[in-house]
């Protein structure tokens, strides 16, 4: 059984269908990349996985560890090991980055039948994780994302991910807008967390990230459907040719079906 199985997923927002039948299976230990042009539904897929309510699933199903993911509240998904790195991390003035993370980790640990971590143990644990993403200690004590630069926000997402120790991590265009140094830090963070137990779904608009995070499988999402799946070389092919050569046959297929 795959860790994540998406079957014929249709989703809409404000009555506009965005996902039009997505099929995808991700096994533990694998990194899958999802690429596609703007508006193809990449972010919608990430949001549906994380449980955002504005996105209405009209057809299909998602199984996570064999369970019906769509029945679970966003916090349950997180406690069961799903983490989504946001494309636009939210600033939360008044809530300390580190204390919030402690509350989040303890919510997850409690759910998993582990003891809550006390302040001392947590600090030791967090310091370890900070090294991975080269986080400045000052960002730890600031309110969540408040006044962070774009790069710092993305790095903070990877930091949250490493602390919360997910089973399935979904990265929603975490690379967008990053300079090469920040991109490498994000990639290093992901690579250091790569393991047999963990799977990644890396959503990106740009092939460049995949030079640093080498995926096992690459999917191309166009107009709400996965139109092609291949190995890491598919990403390079896309870099060369763009998406147009994949869009056309799909357009033709649509004409036939309607």
């Amino acid at each position: 059984m795959s860790l994540l199985e998406i079957k014929n997923l249709h989703a809409q927002v404000e009555e506009q269908e965005i996902l039009k039948g997505v099929d995808l299976a991700v096994n533990q230990g694998e990194i899958h990349a999802i690429m596609g042009p703007n508006g193809s539904g990449k972010s919608t897929l990430a949001q549906v996985l994380a449980g955002k309510e504005e996105y209405e699933v009209t057809e299909g199903e998602i199984l996570y560890k064999g369970q019906d993911l769509l029945e679970m509240a966003p916090e349950e998904r997180a406690r069961e090991g799903i983490f989504m790195a946001f494309q636009y991390p939210v600033e939360i003035p008044g809530v300390s980055n580190v204390y919030f993370l402690k509350a989040a980790l303890n919510a997850i640990r409690t759910h998993r039948g582990l003891e809550e971590m006390d302040a001392m143990d947590f600090l030791v644990y967090v310091r370890e994780k900070m090294k991975v993403v080269k986080m400045d200690e000052a960002l730890l004590n600031r309110p969540v994302n408040e006044g962070f630069s774009g790069g710092e926000k993305k790095r903070n997402e990877i930091f949250h991910m490493s602390v919360l120790d997910p089973v399935l991590a979904v990265l929603d265009e975490t690379d967008s807008g990053l300079d090469i140094d920040a991109l490498k830090i994000v990639a290093d963070g992901v690579n250091s967390l790569r393991s047999e137990e963990r799977a990644f779904l890396v959503i990106t608009h740009y092939q460049r990230l995949l030079n640093y995070i080498v995926p096992d499988v690459v999917h191309v999402l166009i107009d709400g459907r996965i139109v092609r799946t291949g190995g890491k070389d598919l990403a390079l092919e896309l870099e060369d040719k763009g998406y147009a050569w994949l869009e056309e046959p799909l357009g033709a297929a649509e004409t036939v079906s309607t």
Binding site: G51, V95, H160
Partner: peptide, 28 residues
Amino acid sequence: ETAIFYLRSRGIGEEAARSLLTYAFAAD
């Protein structure tokens, strides 16, 4: 609501997320 979703996506329950943001509103 976006902030609530962000907190929930990290494992914080909905009620706690709302309370946390309410506290944050008063924090300054």
